[in-house]
Amino acid sequence: MTHIVDVGERHIREINEEIQEAAARGDEIRVVNTLSRHNLGVGLPDGCKISFEGSVGYYCGGLNTGARIEVERNAGWAVGEGMSKGHITVGGYAGMSVGAAMINGTIHVKGDAGPRCGVAMKGGNIVVEGKIGYQSGFMAHQGKIIALGGAGESCADALWSAEVWVAGDVDSLGVDVNVVEPTAEEVAEVDAILDPLGLVDSSRNWRKMVAGERLWYFESRDASAWLMI
């Protein structure tokens, strides 16, 4: 059965407790009258299926441990931050820091994503159908950020081992980025992520960005690397 949670002006604790109780019962959850409130659906459990009417504020789906989350329209900052498992779909646009520090799972944004998309992410995948904002991928450890509609300035800034894949224009590159030609196998891996989302298009001209690895180490005699930090 579907449990309806009416958000309105109720205390955020009460709303989240109602969501957690419904999830514990195994109900499918529909959250309505969201008013773009912050902190809706934090720390959701594995197996939970939940959808949010309209738009949500900051940290929706934060620290998710396996729920399947759908946001009908837009999401505020840090949707799915710190999530370890699960799948989040944002029907519209997403604000700053999509999937910040996430460990695993998938976040799919149908519109554009704001600055620092995938910042500090430790794994998993972020797929943005539109454009990703400036400094996306900042210090991302592992995982993939895939943007189908271009990227803003300072793209893939100071990466660890994560990859940023962009189809379309990149306004500018961040510090310490190498743009590499992906192999057919690597493109196939990305297509395998896009396939379940119905987003495969073999005509894309990918730019794959990885760390230049110069910022990984102190380079005492390369003053230019120092000026960047």
Binding site: Y59, M96, I103, A120, K122, G123, W160, W216, Y217, F218
Partner: peptide
């Protein structure tokens, strides 16, 4: 979640 042996210089601004 870091490559082994790198000089880890952490961020100061929170990501979110």
């Amino acid at each position: 979640t870091l490559p082994e042996g790198v000089d880890q210089r952490s961020t100061i601004r929170h990501p979110d």
